[in-house]
Design a protein around this nucleic acid. Sequence first.
DNA 1: TTGAAAGCGCTAACAG
DNA 2: CTGTTAGCGCTTTCAA
Lengths: 337, 337
Amino acid sequence: MQRKKHAVTIQDVAKAAKVSVSTVSRVLNGKVDVANETQERILSVIAQLGYTSNLAARSMRSRRKNLIGLVVPDIGFPYSIEIMKGINRAIAQSKFDLLVYTTGDVRKNGSALHEQHYVSLLNNSVTDGVIIVASAASDFITNAPIVAVDPHIVNPNYPYVQGTNYQGALEIMEYLLGLGHRRIGFINGRPEIASAQRRLEGYKDALKAANIKVDESLIVPGDFVQPAAYKSTLQLLSLKDPPTAIFAANDQSAMGVYQAAEELGFRIPEDLSVVGFDNISEAKYMGLTTMDQSLDEMGYAAVQMLIKLIQKEPVETEAHKIPTKLIVRTSCSKPRH
Amino acid sequence: MQRKKHAVTIQDVAKAAKVSVSTVSRVLNGKVDVANETQERILSVIAQLGYTSNLAARSMRSRRKNLIGLVVPDIGFPYSIEIMKGINRAIAQSKFDLLVYTTGDVRKNGSALHEQHYVSLLNNSVTDGVIIVASAASDFITNAPIVAVDPHIVNPNYPYVQGTNYQGALEIMEYLLGLGHRRIGFINGRPEIASAQRRLEGYKDALKAANIKVDESLIVPGDFVQPAAYKSTLQLLSLKDPPTAIFAANDQSAMGVYQAAEELGFRIPEDLSVVGFDNISEAKYMGLTTMDQSLDEMGYAAVQMLIKLIQKEPVETEAHKIPTKLIVRTSCSKPRH
DNA sequence: TTGAAAGCGCTAACAG
DNA sequence: CTGTTAGCGCTTTCAA
């Protein structure tokens, strides 16, 4: 059974070591001006009593906490997980620890409105800086620095890290066009989100550059989720003149495309070439080509950036762009006529 | 640019609303004894100033924080991620939020020794209770409750949740023995960890029950990681009388088995049946059979249990056992003679 | 219904 | 080198 002792405080330690609390505080914070003998006595008392300083109290008084905050709506979502992997990697190499705050569900606390709340919660007290994932706010009021990863809005007024969505979309299209595809379907993302907008722009611009008229009937909703993409793909593939290739705005929708294509008896990639934005580990088994958005690199870069801000080192003012990369594990096919 | 205003405190709110801090605190905490008029005035000032209460200060004074803590060494590791998925699910349904503390790397702060530290850090200040993953300590001193998920040691002195490792191993063996396998290799886990010990026991007991002598040369180290399992599998498969099936103690080592088997030209499952403990999403593409440890269920159950403890509701004193389940996506083969 | 004041556990001057 | 003291921002008696 866990001992439910009343938590031992710095006072208890001071009393037991027969010194004042300030002396204990000094050894706790590694100040040099403490006699060796006293220091050892205090240390041994601390060990003996199993004392751990009170996070809340300490945070309230000291400037530096060596703690970085992360605000995510949902830590079980693959998207969040990828970003967290990168953040974790960077944290492991740093002297900072990480405190992740989550409500477990975007809907539980209507994220958009409450982002500011959570950021303040951490940043005004326990954290030296905060990373916020997929933020929708255009502004944040904090005294400690903040860095956003893949913000939803287009030009936020705070430092952020994002992928090269437009460039990536261009590359996907160049790849497909290079194989000879002329009718390429596009499964759109959530239209209000910046990254989805950029991907769509890339799709359109690539077509224009190739002198192919944009056929709006080939652009269908997907909302970044599988069911919507599935439905849209069924629709796309039953056109009189169906596309020979499909570009899905993210990994979830690529899965939806796969599901629909399989159901209709289309083989991938022989009958239908599919490229999905974001990365899917099973992609190679499904014949999909993917455009890796390197979410983990974004998380990694965000931590680096935040640490610089915390240490007041210079940071390039322009957004950190993390390059996307095309992963052709199973080649797409040329269109059949 | 983020406004770096000095954080707005309850004092600022009080001043602006022309009331005392205690009155502000009252409306903040939903006390009833506040005049409607005052209440509304304060609320509007709060909104206007963008006030967020200081987590640290608040934690110091109040008993209930509606916050659950989670201590994990590494949030980028698949094992941790699975558990966190379940925890996230449970948190989403509850009124509690989650605060995850991680150093990013087991090695960064020699976990075993520091677990107590991190638990106290959270539990003595900001959280109402803590979940600790893969704990190695046999005891914890805290004033708030704690629940361990998959503890490393055998009989910890605190509430915990774990899988049915022994039972699962038996089932795997019964499955393989039922197919006719008689020489079954075992890739061991980390021998000091309870779950690995139970899996090995299951392996041995199943053999004994089938009147097959345990051949120690078929039990090889794997340490729960791919490289070690890979090496051991090479060794196993080059015996004069190699096993016809291999039972890997976890998913990572199953990957190592796959890699080695592929390299030596063994086809799975035709030439070699492989069952791995824990779950691998690509398993079905690789011909592997898996025993799902349901790490996410363990995380989910841990939250449920912790919430009951926090609310001082009764909890079965005996450990929560989460059943493992065999996933036969691609059947193993019968041994060839 | 409200305010004044005490104090949570800690750090940071300032004396000695 | 060490102790005394003053708060950090908040909740919570206790009076008014």
